[in-house]
Amino acid sequence: MPEQFLPGAEVHRLDDAPMAGDGGARAGWHITWDRNATAAAPADLVPFDNLVQYFAGSGAGSAPHLLWDPFTGRVAQFFSATSRSKSFVNKAGGVETNRKGNLLVQIETVFFPYCQVDGRVYATVADTPCVGLDRIVEWLRSWGVPDDWPMGWPDWSSQRNAGIWDSTSGHYGHSQVPENDHNDPGPMPLGMFQTNTAARTDRRRLDEEVR
């Protein structure tokens, strides 16, 4: 069985609770968007430890499964993989969001547009080094999340289809989840699945050479 906690993650466990159990494995992507910056007025990235403290404390009511820093690869985990997390809005009597399916791992990327790190400004997550993204995708794949964005690769627009969300496994941006009004995470790296596949192929080839 896959591991409940991402190997290497810093665990700050909150209150696990069951999923709806109505089928499918999904991943939901967010950015923390803790500051509003512009190309003309960039701002320094909020420290990872500050956000860990927030989600483990006063922000526990909106905590994700994972908090990921794409500049260092650090990951904190607040819920086990098969628990619900709390980063999506879920309206009473509406479409299920946080508890949808058998698995819905939500990832908050430590990022906001035009954040500044070591003197360089980054407009999108896709522009960052994305350190550790491969191991997150590999872990999600081990839980049955397919390498696909059922509503298309995310950008800064919002596109929501309750039927697709309800019936289809895969990766979803916050901008693609019913009942929500955020348009993050913005563009994600186009090679996030291909790179992982290549790495897995390289490991298989190495194993064969060793044998």
Rank of each mutant, 00 (worst) to 15 (best):
V117Y: 01
V89G: 00
A39L: 04
A25V: 07
S83Y: 03
V75Y: 08
P47C: 05
Y54W: 15
V46D: 03
N90A: 13
G94N: 05
T38R: 11
V117I: 12
V75E: 05
T72L: 09
S62G: 15
W29I: 09
G24V: 09
V52E: 01
H65D: 08
G94P: 11
T38F: 02
P70E: 05
L51E: 11
G101I: 10
F55N: 05
Y122P: 02
P47H: 04
E96F: 05
S87N: 11
R35L: 13
G119N: 04
A25Y: 02
A60R: 14
C115G: 05
R26S: 09
D49H: 05
Q106S: 11
D44T: 04
D118C: 00
A76E: 02
V95H: 09
S62P: 00
G24M: 07
S85T: 03
G61C: 02
K86W: 15
Y114C: 05
G59M: 09
T82H: 13
H65G: 03
E108D: 14
Y122F: 15
F88M: 10
A56D: 10
A40F: 03
V121L: 08
A41E: 14
D49K: 03
Q53K: 11
G57M: 02
L45S: 00
S58G: 04
N36D: 15
T32A: 10
R26T: 14
P113L: 04
A76P: 01
A92W: 12
D69H: 01
A81P: 05
L51P: 00
E108R: 06
T32W: 06
G23A: 11
F55M: 02
Q116M: 08
L104F: 13
